[in-house]
Design a protein around this nucleic acid. Structure first.
Lengths: 264, 264
DNA sequence: AATTATTACGTTCGACGTAATGATC
DNA sequence: GATCATTACGTCGAACGTAATAATT
């Protein structure tokens, strides 16, 4: 199970084509075909159905492992590179939108810095493989529960946990009341996966299916989201701290969930 | 970073000897030396100091990643082998001591079965790499928090959470009272790592350092442990269900911890 | 001197490309 | 017939063993 073969397998599976994968990886068709053949011989099972190319059951199992393995290999290389290189002169940090403020505090003012804002998993990945020196990511979790990040072995250097609140229009009937999330399962929600917990994840955490998006906000700007809420387009779950006078805050008391920020 | 090289690196690091590692792996000294040399050239850092052999800082970083990677590779192979083989005629299951009862319920009576009892991580590992078909493991965790098992991608099929209690001699002054763990930081504890949470892990979970073992119980037999408790040798944290009339049960209410059992 | 790691060198195996063949839309 | 995967084959590199060498104790 040479990692190179796993890499081409992943690519072929994703693209659904040997030739496409070959092009992207800089191999010939033939080489890709051989990679898959060797891999199949090695594990003793057919991994791909051909024409059209689609993963078999066995292939799906392998695929679930292959990506984390490849990620971890990159993380390993990056980690030894870090100790070999010593402290960087130019600091590259990343953060999720709601964590940018924290990330900036990280930085000694004099230092040369670049900041990347991105999705949680993307930041975590980038830190793991050494594209970034540090990252600050946030999300919704049960108290003292770590965020579910890709398994890279990156240690959590520090974290905070803050109360969550549902942002609602000022004239909302429950305005100011502490609430149980279940009460609002059937409300009009704004799904803002770029900012806070996407609704499907929230459903899992709250163990209550049915949070459905009336509107999906693709931006990563909290002000825009708050404006939408204030205008009555729907509700959004956010850290209480992120809310301002434009919206009503409905503190969440049930289930016990917190807004967690982790330093990587 | 050929996995074979990682494997020999791990072996060399653990054994502190190239020659020993060569013997165990069925290579020549020379081959092992070359493996390490290639690996060092690949990552661009010295991984081992020689004579005596000891991992460098960079080597330590790599080592942290190498073992999970190799485990996951084995898990991948095992997973595709499972779907290729179909349902096994002979069922091999594993369980931690406190989970054996649950594990037995898994088994359709007619079936041919072997049961292995072992430590939590060992059972999880064995399930991941296909030595066992299923496993049931238990441990202490925050509510709805999964057990911290080696990262193998093995899904948790089901779980239960039960209240925890401190087992104490019948004449214990707090007998029958619900208690906060902190009250008992300085008590005489029996560390029984083979049965429930080892004390260091408990300290981490309770966020209160200082749980120190007055006695370490190396067995995996709950009755023996309860006898020790009843005889006044110390306290032990166990699922309430596991306690019997010989000892007093002090239900734990703070911090909120549960005894969690997971089916793998 | 004995043990242990490294280096030199030869062999073998395997990864890859080129090119021909076979399958599928 | 065009696209795409497989097979055949030749080349080059690299993984390994043998054996000689260097370094520690």
């Amino acid at each position: 199970m040479d990692p190179r073969f796993l890499r081409t397998f992943v690519r072929v599976a994703r693209l659904g084509s040997f030739s496409e994968a070959a092009r992207e990886l800089g191999y010939t068709q033939s080489a890709v075909s051989q990679h898959i053949a060797v891999l199949e011989a090695d594990v003793g099972a057919v991994l791909l159905r051909r024409r059209p190319v689609a993963v078999t059951e066995a292939g799906a199992r392998l695929l679930e492992h292959a990506e984390p393995i490849l990620l971890r290999l990159d993380a390993a290389r990056a980690d030894v590179a870090r100790v070999a290189a010593g402290p960087p002169s130019h600091l590259r940090i990343g953060a999720t939108p709601l964590a940018v403020a924290f990330a900036c505090e990280l930085v000694a003012p004099a230092l040369s810095v670049t900041v990347r804002v991105g999705a949680r998993n993307e930041i975590a990945r980038a830190v793991a493989v050494g594209e970034l020196d540090h990252g600050v990511v946030d999300g919704v979790a049960a108290p003292s529960d770590p965020l579910r990040l890709p398994e890279t072995g990156t240690p959590v250097a520090a974290f905070t946990e803050e109360p969550l609140a549902v942002a609602a229009p000022l004239d909302h009937p429950l305005s100011g009341h502490a609430i149980q999330m279940e009460v609002l399962v059937d409300a009009r929600w704004i799904d803002a996966p770029g900012i806070c917990a996407p609704l499907p994840e929230l459903s899992a955490l709250a163990r209550a299916d049915g949070f459905r998006a009336a509107l999906t906000y693709e931006g990563s700007d909290v002000n825009g989201l708050l404006a939408l809420v204030a205008a009555g387009h729907g509700l959004a779950l956010l850290p209480e701290r992120a809310l301002d006078g434009r919206v009503a805050a409905l503190p969440v008391i049930q289930p016990t969930l917190v807004h967690r920020t982790e330093w990587l």
